[in-house]
Design a protein around this nucleic acid. Sequence first.
DNA 1: GGTCTAATTGAGATATAATCTCAATAGAGC
DNA 2: GCTCTATTGAGATTATATCTCAATTAGACC
Lengths: 126, 126
Amino acid sequence: MNMRNTVQRSLVLETVRELKCHATADEVYQSIVKRHPDISRATVYRNLNLLSDLGDIRRREMPGGADRYDHQCHDHYHARCVQCGRILDVDMEFIADLDQRIKDARGFAFTGHDIVFRGICPECHQ
Amino acid sequence: MNMRNTVQRSLVLETVRELKCHATADEVYQSIVKRHPDISRATVYRNLNLLSDLGDIRRREMPGGADRYDHQCHDHYHARCVQCGRILDVDMEFIADLDQRIKDARGFAFTGHDIVFRGICPECHQ
DNA sequence: GGTCTAATTGAGATATAATCTCAATAGAGC
DNA sequence: GCTCTATTGAGATTATATCTCAATTAGACC
């Protein structure tokens, strides 16, 4: 399977990088469609998936909301405002050995973990 | 606003308790509809929300999947099989002071956190 | 540059999760 | 039993994401 460089694929990658953090697929689409009105949502979704698989960007599945796409691929934690849904990076060291603290894995083969803090963001509690 | 005891509300609560752990709204609905074919999905969703607000059950929003409803209301962590989507409880002490380790809260008022481990469950890696 | 071929795209249908609308129903207080 | 209004059922709607398939096009080869 020979991968091709397409205008659309480049646009998706550039846009995720430009939007900096935690853009949803729809935000990426809305941003691209302003300059390229013919791009299809399906193309945006397809390329977000492909670029995530390639490791160029990282998909962050969020509890209670749409998936986010992050130009930062390193492991880090997030906070979500329960009022507006905004996602912020959390400034905290990554706990690499957290799964070692599990007392009984019951045959589960762990590959990673996510921590999402809940709270109210400054904008929301006025 | 006087809350009423309805057959449907009782069924939803009982069913979440019977299904023990992590049932999705659809699983609750499918379970009830066998004996009460006239119940509406909307009623199940409405009551799951109401009972969660009352604290009788607890909603667990899961990254990459439907919300789960838990008869156990205490804080604990979960693991999700990235192949089949199954959710399991994790046997690990709850880290009550985790949000104290955040270096810069940037005005965020934290109310809690969720940890979801990723991995492959025993059934899936055969 | 022209041709070939399969990867990719766009448009729209489909799937899934959840909520909303509104007329009909039925708890609960009297 | 009567009344009031919370609640329900049916179906429409919204949001998120994927799938289908014919048309397009990137890249290889000449």
